[in-house]
Amino acid sequence: MKAATVSQLKKELNFRSREELLELCLRLSKFKKENKELLTYLLFEEGDEVAYIQNVKQEVDELFKDINTKAWFYIKKSIRKILRVVKKYIRYSGKKDTEVELLMYFCFKLKNFSPSIKRNPAMQNLYDRQLISINKTLLKLHEDLQYDYKLQMEEMGI
């Protein structure tokens, strides 16, 4: 089965009643965890972005605490998983300032992680790529926000 395009879906949804749309949303939420998480964000957390960012930061803190530091293999695997989680939450929000803030926090945690990522080229490259991503996203923000975030990055040491 070939999936319809977004514009086709939008046109079809315009013809559906309120009850049908509600039923479709509930049915979507039953199939994938990500659908349910996105719906939760849109319904409950979109209005308070600051609290959303704080919740994500707390989850990142917990994930960093749970990393098995016995071998680099486990460290790399765990850090990549944390980055996937952060990127997922960034996708839910879709806001550039949220993206910058969460990636900055991830880089801060990664830089201060023990054992140091400087001893592992793969982790150092991952860190460098995230800094490049932050800087690209910063260019899309207002000049005042760019300045504030760059100051914050300097304070954090990233």
Rank of each mutant, 00 (worst) to 15 (best):
V86D: 04
E154D: 03
I67R: 06
L145D: 12
F106Q: 10
E46Q: 07
F31I: 15
D48P: 10
A51S: 12
L145A: 15
F106P: 10
I90A: 10
M156Y: 13
E143H: 11
D48N: 15
E49T: 02
V100M: 10
D48Y: 13
L26I: 13
K140Q: 02
K109D: 08
Y52C: 00
V6K: 01
R16A: 12
I75E: 04
I117N: 00
L145Q: 13
K150V: 03
Y105C: 10
N55D: 11
L26C: 04
S114K: 02
K81M: 07
L24W: 14
N14S: 13
E23S: 08
E59L: 04
E62P: 00
C107Y: 09
E20Y: 10
E155N: 09
D144E: 15
R119D: 06
K109Q: 07
L83P: 02
Q8I: 03
K2Y: 11
Y127F: 12
K2A: 05
L38A: 06
I134N: 05
V6G: 03
N135M: 12
E20A: 14
I134P: 07
R18E: 08
N125D: 14
R80I: 01
G94K: 12
R27P: 08
Q146T: 04
S78P: 04
K118E: 15
A71G: 05
F108E: 10
Y105Q: 11
E62H: 12
C25L: 11
N120S: 15
M1S: 02
I82Q: 01
N112P: 05
S116F: 00
I132V: 00
L43Q: 09
L9K: 07
V50L: 08
E12Y: 08
L43C: 13
E45H: 15
F108Q: 11
R91P: 03
C25V: 01
K36C: 07
E37Q: 08
A3F: 10
E99D: 11
K30P: 06
L103S: 09
E20H: 12
L43A: 11
V85Q: 06
S78H: 06
T5A: 03
I134A: 05
K76L: 13
Y149G: 09
F108Y: 07
E20C: 10
F73Y: 04
F31N: 03
K87F: 06
I53F: 07
K88N: 01
I79H: 00
D48T: 11
K96Q: 15
V86G: 05
L13A: 00
Q130G: 01
N112D: 12
R84D: 02
I134R: 10
Q54F: 12
S29C: 14
F73N: 13
V60I: 14
F15V: 02
R18S: 08
M104A: 13
E45D: 14
L110H: 09
Q124D: 01
Y89M: 14
E62I: 12
R129G: 05
K10Q: 12
T137G: 01
L126F: 02
V56R: 05
G47Q: 07
N125W: 08
V50I: 03
A4P: 06
Y89K: 15
Y105P: 07
R119C: 02
K10R: 09
E45P: 04
P115C: 00
D148V: 13
Q130E: 15
I82T: 04
I75G: 03
D66H: 06
L102G: 10
